[in-house]
Amino acid sequence: MSHLVLEGLGKSYGTAVAVEGLDLSVARGEFISLLGPSGCGKTTTLQMIAGFVPVDRGRILLDGGDLGGVAPNKRGLGIVFQSYALFPHMTVAQNIAFGLEMRGIEKAEREKRTLEAMALVGLKGFEERYPRRMSGGQQQRVALARALVIRPSLLLLDEPLSNLDAKLREEMQGELRQIQRSIGTTTILVTHDQHEAMALSDRIVVMNKARVEQIGAPDAVYGAPDTAFVANFLGKTNVLTATGDGSGHVAIEALSVPLAGVPSGATRIAVRPERLGFAAEGAPGFSARITSRVFQGAHWLLTAESVAGPVTLIRHNNGTPVPEEGESVKLSFGPGDAALLAEGAGS
């Protein structure tokens, strides 16, 4: 049985639809990311699960029970807020123990579990500090410890890393993943950062304009985006205009590559910059002219104007010569490098 199930979840503010028709089923211990641009409905979804925002349509089931009539302070969920929302007038230990105190857990047990939680997030020795006297990363750990110490059935993370600088964010990502694995709490992360979502999650839910665009494992969603929006939101991609031949192949000029399910006629496909390459001497390819070439150390970033549209390429700096700006080249990609995009999807 799934641990958490969202069934046709929907929310409107007046005439504006914030979330529509969200179906998701989360297994116990799974790490799920809700990924999307601001205003896509991911935070509203999280707040509906938390109970801060009433559900308009559909329902939320936790361990088979409907959360509909359950007050937010009875749901027993651990939440880490974007601003951390620590209690500034309480010490770190008091902050973390607050949830235990609300559950009427006796003092000795409370202190033991508080210390355990502090050790888990690497904050030993900070018991008597006040949050304002701590760095952003440390505050983040306090918030995480405070959410985990109550042994929540579900951990909700609302853009928890967005207030940290890039280096610290990367560090915390690794640590967050490791902590989540070690305690096995089912976790839902809201983020607009594709790297964060891909690095942390078992599955990603890509959302756009109140609707789910795609659900899947990070590498699956990255490798085979269903829509142009997903292709563009998860990393850079090239959207190419190609022709389907009606027998499972897609063609651009002389290049013909097998692609399952491709309809006949003009179609749009997505090819990642790192999968797009130069055709070998005499091999079939499609024409393009290099418009710019930027050296980035480990790789070259090239842009070109091709017959199928403007493209970006990444070539690893492995010693092979890289074409000059203005040079005409033949481009190619192999089977499995292209993804078919659904028609009519946004951007």
Binding site: N73, R75, F81, S83, F98, G99, M102
Partner: peptide, 23 residues
């Protein structure tokens, strides 16, 4: 005040009255 602070206390199981008094 942090606008989320009441929600934070709520999620930890505090009642409205406790939130007022303690937070």
């Amino acid at each position: 005040l942090d606008p989320q602070i009441e929600n934070a206390a709520l999620s930890l199981g505090a009642s409205r009255l406790t939130i007022w008094r303690r937070v």
